[in-house]
Nucleic acid binder design. Structure first.
Length: 188
DNA sequence: ACCCTAACCTAATCAACGA
DNA sequence: TCGTTGATTAGGTTAGGGT
């Protein structure tokens, strides 16, 4: 529904995107959790649907996967859960249930992953990659991550934030200065 | 063909950090 | 203290793998 391809400037005017780009835009391969892994995840979810970073790390090592997979799994699981609730909201449970969720949410707020700070050279690399392709696939992200020495999941988040803020910025500025060459002091 | 769900997306918001 | 920006969320879409 959303249009990943109406970016400004020359992002896609770049000539050599064709069959090869599809390869680099590939998604990461789907994880297939075993029953045992799933049992652990579901159990953890029932206890705390909003786990903190420490919990996610612990689960990750417990079922031998990456923390980012745990994060995605919980996101998807919560979404499914909410959807089901909307289907049949009529049950005996009442208002107190909502407050419980709020509390849980607040509690998990306590430990989040500590903010990673990028050096200017790391940012330079990221920005340059962004201008070439704002939607890098798993291969590009991993290569980039290796290059600047940061986990791939952080690269993915960086691109998400960057794209999102690009959209906001464009909304604020109607259509004037569509050639604006993107702040960020870049040197020749 | 269809279903389930991991992967991925945007938009809004929380919050750490530096000027 | 305030703007910038990384991290997390809700909620929706895309696509891989099984039936």
């Amino acid at each position: 529904m959303f249009e990943p391809l109406n970016w400004p400037v020359k992002c896609f005017l770049s000539p050599n995107l064709s069959t090869e780009t599809t390869a680099t835009n590939r998604r990461r391969s789907r994880a297939k959790f075993t029953e045992d892994q799933l049992k652990i995840l579901v159990n953890a979810f029932n206890q705390k649907p909003y786990p903190g970073y420490a919990t996610k790390k612990r689960l990750a090592s417990e079922i031998n996967t990456e923390e980012s997979r745990i994060q995605i799994w919980f996101q998807n699981r919560r979404a499914r859960h909410r959807f089901q609730k909307r289907s049949e909201p009529e049950e005996d449970l009442k208002s107190s249930q909502d407050e419980d969720h709020h509390e849980e949410k607040i509690r998990s707020r306590e430990d989040r992953r500590c903010r990673t700070s990028y050096t200017s050279s790391q940012l330079h690399t990221l920005i340059e990659a962004f201008m070439k392709n704002p939607y890098p696939g798993i291969d590009s992200r991993e290569q980039l991550a290796k290059e600047i020495g940061v986990p791939e999941s952080r690269v993915q988040i960086w691109f998400q934030n960057r794209r999102s803020r690009f959209h906001v910025q464009r909304k604020r500025e109607p259509d004037e200065a569509l050639e604006q060459r993107q702040d960020q002091g870049q040197d020749p």
